[in-house]
């Protein structure tokens, strides 16, 4: 099988930094690593399986209600994930709140279905969906890593910066509250794009 299907979405055509898709529901969950990881997993699963299902039924879908059929398939998976999280990972589902529902309108999912699932066989579609979800997840986790480490001094809730460093304990260190605020996620994303496009010069936009 063509390796590009799963290699490209992660590096060359990453859905967030290159195609600029799916930022909506992404950034608000990157304050802490835990929710970001669950969100990344959920999106990967939904993208993969809805791509798979739509690809399976692609020849039967009436053209006029195409978008609605796709939305229904995606929404079904999102509701299933939401129900499962509520039952088995209640704390995390509370932290993700409305953003789980917003996976439905995550442009990556509809984008991949339209661009790939509708025109390819089920198995490649599944892999394409999973790879794109993964490419999206990596960015989420990278952003969350910096925001949690610099903003709260922890990773996955475990203290990383030694407590004795903090000013209140007589040290010199203070958490940077700016990283916790929503705007910092966007600025970090800008920096990630900067780094990526400095390395991969072919992605730079012409003037």
């Amino acid at each position: 099988m063509d390796k590009k299907i799963y290699k490209n979405p992660i590096f060359v055509s990453n859905p967030i930094t290159v195609l600029v898709l799916g930022i909506c529901s992404a950034l608000a969950v990157t304050v802490k690593m835990g929710p970001a990881l669950v969100m990344a997993l959920s999106v990967t699963v939904v993208t993969g399986f809805s791509n798979f299902i739509v690809s399976m039924i692609r020849k039967t879908i009436p053209n006029r209600i195409r978008i609605i059929v796709q939305l229904v398939v995606v929404a079904m998976f999102v509701i299933l994930i939401d129900q499962i999280l509520k039952a088995f990972a209640y704390d995390i589902s509370k932290q993700l709140s409305v953003y789980i529902g917003l996976i439905i309108t995550n442009c990556i999912i509809m984008g991949r279905i339209e661009a790939f699932g509708l025109g390819h066989k089920p198995i490649p579609s599944l892999i394409d969906g999973l790879a794109n979800g993964f490419g999206y997840g990596i960015i989420l986790v990278v952003v969350a890593f910096f925001r949690e480490l610099l903003g709260s001094g922890t990773l996955f809730g475990v203290q990383i910066i030694p407590l004795s460093w903090y000013v209140k304990n007589g040290g010199f260190y203070e958490n940077n509250g700016l990283f916790i605020l929503p705007p910092m996620a966007l600025i970090l994303l800008g920096v990630i794009v900067w780094v990526q496009r400095s390395i991969q010069k072919e992605l730079q936009e012409k003037k």
């Binding site: 929503p182 800008g190 794009v193 003037k207």
Partner: peptide, 23 residues
């Protein structure tokens, strides 16, 4: 704008700065 930031990169950063202003 520095070449790697052109387009989407600088837009992210501007949106972030506008967000800080809105705070």
């Amino acid at each position: 704008v520095p070449a790697p930031l052109r387009g989407i990169g600088i837009t992210f950063i501007i949106t972030g700065l506008m967000g800080i202003a809105f705070m």
